[in-house]
Write a protein that binds this DNA or RNA. Structure first.
Length: 583
RNA sequence: GGUCUCGUAGUGUAGUGGUUAACACGCCAGUCUGUCACACUGGAAAUCGCGAGUUCAAUCCUCGUCGGGACCGCCA
């Protein structure tokens, strides 16, 4: 028999009545009724109520002396609760343990800095500083359990589909592209550094070249970039996967099966079935004003630039004009529209004109500047029904696109148009291979390792800005879970692509020497993707902040308040790794 | 790096140019044999983040500073 317990706190029921048992856990709550004392003992599995026999005054005194959240072990007889005292909220609600022995295993010696129960709100830095107490609280505790189950489900499903989990190095070489690296100084090689991988990108491509057909890994990734509510500073996990002799559709098929089944396993929300909609990048930017659209939002953006070219509206002249038509809101109070205008201007819009749709005409502040023909065109272009309201965004094209997206989301939120019990996945496809950077020079718009659609031929013949890549994102409810791509496995095409982006052959040879070299020895065509595990868990757990689904998260300034990282190291340690501090 | 925002008992909040700084949870003591967010009675607990300024008087107004958070930049 285990020294501390025969059963956990979630499993005893009326089948155990009259058994002598031991449970161990934390003193969750305490109710002293004078004659009778109730102790709630909580462990990872549940809560069991313990009663203290009235006649045993020593035990009563002992029980009264235990501070909440102390660790205890209790021996006693399982007894049925009186019929009218059954607690349906507890799995163990039919029984209680009549204590015969109480052992205090570890006492709480100070006042608790945060309430474990009842679960009141606590400021976040304090929660992180006392994460071991915070994690006892039901909500976060359950999130961590959920995360564990999701991760093991992912492993099982990937393995069942024939993928091999292969781990790749954590100490590797700094890579020139992308995010800032975390550097690790080398002791043996003065002045040289390892880097923590931003992703196992090159390793997984090398694995494909090594003849492994389907690879995956729950991969830790490290990027020295600032945090966001949905983005951990420093480190995060990806479901990294890659397939050899595979096309975009092969990746989509695997991910659609995985994501649909995974989300179905852990959520009761409605999920769209495969195939997920494939939306070309340019279409997404126009219709939704973003490359990560929330398809729960029924509002769509239309381009009406051409209609306004013929109209005499100064403010819209020579601008890109986009319209969002929201149904059944013409009876909203004036304040609703004023607030929307305020929101729009706060986000950088020059204004937000709006028009009510009436019987075959438009009504509102700018209606008099639009011809009857123009009004008809607007109504038919947006397919507007009576009592709709059209919102207009007019600006330089890029800004109009972005603003329309922001306003589309805000309108849907304020009008409560977004269903809370639905997951809608989609693919954004056909990203451009190149774009102009701020200095007006050509650069890779996403991943330099992506295969251009059409291969070497289009690189040689087409206007670079018109070349599309086999580059795709998977998006769910407006959250980008991942980018992926069919990789460029041909050395010559790689060199050409880099040349267009202004890099010499030497750059490819030196900076990506492992891949570039390997690809000369029979690299298979391959493709992959790497959805963020943290974001998947956030979506399923319905948590808006990433710290709620990570056991020991850093704060937004990339500090671990529990372990005090980063911290100072000794002069000796620095000397060994040949580092002099610049102060 | 920038913008916004928050900082008041252990915790979460309220509040005011002059107060005994309020409420809830927690804590301590007491009453109660059936509670399970027990109830009831009483109590302890706050240099109102820190510094400077304005003022007869600052927790409150101003400036600075420190700390937390959100967003922008950044995240191939």
């Amino acid at each position: 028999m285990n020294k501390y317990k025969t059963h956990n706190c979630g499993e005893l029921n009326k089948n155990n009545i009259n058994e002598e048992v031991k449970i161990a856990g934390w003193l969750h709550n305490y109710r002293d009724h004078g004659g009778i004392i109730f102790l709630d003992i909580r462990d990872h599995y549940g809560i069991t109520q313990v009663t203290i026999p009235e006649e045993d005054s020593n035990m009563k005194e002992l029980a009264e002396s235990i501070p909440k959240e102390s660790a205890v072990s209790i021996k006693g007889i399982v007894t049925p609760r009186p019929d009218n005292m059954i607690n349906p909220k507890l799995a163990t609600g039919e029984i209680e343990i009549n204590a015969s022995e109480i052992n205090i295993l570890s006492k709480v010696e100070k006042e608790l800095p945060i309430n474990v129960f009842p679960e009141t709100e606590v400021r976040e830095d304090l929660r992180l500083q006392y994460r071991f107490l915070d994690l006892r609280r039901e909500k976060v505790h359950n999130n961590i359990i959920l995360r564990s189950k999701i991760v093991s489900s992912i492993r099982r499903r990937m393995t069942d589909m024939g993928f091999l989990e292969i781990t790749t190095p954590i100490l590797t070489a700094s890579s020139p592209e992308g995010a800032r690296d975390y550097l690790v100084p080398s002791r043996i090689h003065p002045g040289k550094f390892y880097a923590l991988p931003q992703a196992p990108q090159q390793f997984k491509q090398l694995l494909m070249t090594s003849g492994f057909d389907k690879y995956f890994q729950i991969a830790p990734c490290f990027r020295d970039e600032d945090a966001r509510a949905d983005r951990s500073p420093g480190e995060f996990y990806q479901l990294d996967m890659e397939m050899a002799f595979a096309t975009q559709d092969d990746i989509f098929k695997v991910m659609e099966k995985l994501l649909y089944e995974l989300f179905s396993e852990f959520s009761n929300k409605k999920i769209n079935k495969a195939p997920f909609p494939r939306i070309p990048f340019t279409e997404s930017m126009l219709k939704y004003g973003t490359d990560k659209p929330d398809l729960r939002n029924p509002l769509e953006i239309k381009d009406v630039t051409n209609i306004f070219k013929k109209e005499n509206l100064e403010a819209f002249k020579n601008k890109t004009v986009r319209v969002i038509c929201a149904p059944n809101i013409s009876d909203k109070p004036r304040k609703f529209f004023d607030d929307m205008i305020e929101f729009a201007t706060e986000n950088g819009a020059k204004g937000l004109a709006w028009l009510k749709v009436e019987e075959n005409k438009l009504n509102g502040p700018i209606a008099k500047f639009i011809s009857e023909e123009g009004q008809q065109s607007l109504i038919s272009e947006t397919d507007a029904k009576k009592e709709s309201v059209m919102f207009f965004i007019a600006d330089e094209e890029n800004i109009a696109t972005k603003l329309s997206g922001i306003i589309r989301t805000e309108l849907a939120n304020r009008l409560n148009l977004i269903s809370k019990d639905e997951f809608i996945f989609c693919w954004i496809v056909d990203f451009p291979m190149f774009e102009l950077n701020d200095e007006g020079k050509l650069d890779f718009s996403h991943n330099p390792f992506s295969m251009p659609q059409g291969g070497m031929k289009v690189l040689e013949e087409k206007n670079p800005l018109e070349i599309l890549a086999y580059q795709y994102d998977i998006v769910c409810n407006g959250i980008e879970l991942s980018s992926g791509a069919v990789r460029n496995h041909e050395p010559k095409t790689m060199v050409k692509a880099f040349e267009i982006a202004g890099y010499t052959k030497e750059v490819v040879e030196n900076k990506f020497s492992a891949l570039y070299n390997a690809f000369h020895y029979g690299a298979p065509p391959h493709a992959g993707i790497a959805p963020g595990v943290d974001r998947i868990v956030m979506l399923i757990a319905d948590e808006p902040n990433i710290r709620e689904i990570i056991a020991f998260p850093m704060n937004s300034k990339a500090e671990d308040l529990l372990m005090h990282a980063p911290n100072n190291v000794t002069a000796k340690q620095l000397k060994e790794i040949h580092i002099k501090l610049d102060e």
